[in-house]
């Protein structure tokens, strides 16, 4: 069953230098109880994609296409209907928990907020639910910790609090944007274990946005690789790690230190003036003459593995 389907989504914004095509004709599906990893390097548009799903982008962004969630197009909802979806149905866990948490409110209150707003619970009940949530994300002595302010939490604990906040209303879909960025490896390992358990127990789906392929390997069922605003590969996680089909996805995987640390030559293209034809062709080792002019479609390579490359067209 498909929970969320993104169809021909575009997110463009105007800058002094020109139009930034951060998300360019992206179509994706997330099934129920499925974790999809959206991976790519900085500037590929993955965060913009996540933000455009709940229309969290600034005014000067032009978003079109369709984002169908449980039969409704999220891009067509009005503000009030959208607020009912945000946080309650679809939760967003942001990167950088320190600036995502309000520094003047206690952590407990911030977690209880969705209970007050979406479920209309009484304050005392909402409070005890918040403490429960903190316990769920394994924060020791949760009742006391709930009364503390974000700056009193360590980085790992803040991230846990963010996760608790995201899960508070048992959403059907969680959008997690780099949930382990900036955390130490031992803390990362804790968070990964926690997220694995929570996702399994809650039955929620997740869209995991990350630059870290090893994180995707640990958490995801499917993976979509983004390059220069486009999806260039979409595959089952096991198939992907057996051998990515798209040359960029392959090089990207090979550049990971534990997979060979082989550099990709050149630099990521700008989102304003991407190269014509295949956007990866200037850096591609398999590039052919045709790649310079023809923009490849996303084609199925083998069972469920799709790549945007003319080698397979």
């Amino acid at each position: 069953m498909t929970l969320l389907s993104i169809e021909h989504l575009n997110s463009h914004f105007m800058t002094v230098d020109g139009i930034v095509r951060a998300v360019d004709d992206v179509s994706l599906e997330i099934g129920e109880n499925e974790t999809l990893g959206l991976v790519g390097e900085s500037g590929c548009g993955k965060t913009v994609l996540a933000l455009s799903l709940l229309r969290l982008l600034s005014e000067n962004t032009k978003t079109d296409g369709r984002v169908i969630y449980k039969g409704r197009d999220l891009l067509k909802l009005n503000e009030k209907e959208l607020r009912g979806v945000r946080g309650k149905e679809i939760a967003h866990i942001f990167q950088n928990p320190l600036s995502s948490l309000n520094p003047v409110l206690t952590v407990g209150f911030q977690i209880s907020e969705p209970f007050l707003r979406h479920q209309g619970l009484k304050k005392s009940i909402a409070n005890s639910r918040a403490v429960q949530m903190l316990g769920l994300v394994r924060i020791p002595s949760a009742p006391d910790r709930a009364k503390e302010y974000p700056h009193e939490f360590s980085g790992g604990m803040r991230q846990r609090a963010m996760i608790a906040m995201g899960l508070a209303c048992s959403p059907s879909l969680i959008i997690a944007d780099e949930p382990t960025r900036g955390l130490d490896v031992t803390i990362q390992a804790q968070i990964v274990e926690l997220m694995k358990d929570l996702i399994k127990n809650s039955g929620a789906s997740m869209l995991l946005i990350t630059h870290d392929l090893s994180l995707a390997a640990q958490l995801c069922d499917k993976v979509a690789v983004m390059y220069s605003g486009e999806i260039v590969e979409y595959a089952d996680i096991k198939e992907f790690f057996k051998g990515p089909a798209h040359p960029y996805a392959r090089s990207f995987l090979e550049s990971v230190p534990s997979r060979g640390m082989k550099p990709i030559r050149g630099i990521s293209p700008s989102l304003i003036n991407p190269p014509p034809g295949c956007r990866f062709h200037p850096r591609c080792d398999c590039s052919m003459d045709i790649c310079k002019s023809v923009h490849p479609p996303l084609t199925e390579v083998k069972d469920g593995q799709h790549a945007r490359c003319l080698l397979y067209a």
Binding site: V185, T186, D212, A217, Q218, F241, L253, S258
Partner: peptide, 8 residues
């Protein structure tokens, strides 16, 4: 805790 880029 070293992350390994391989789900297998």
């Amino acid at each position: 805790a070293i992350p390994i880029a391989d789900p297998q």
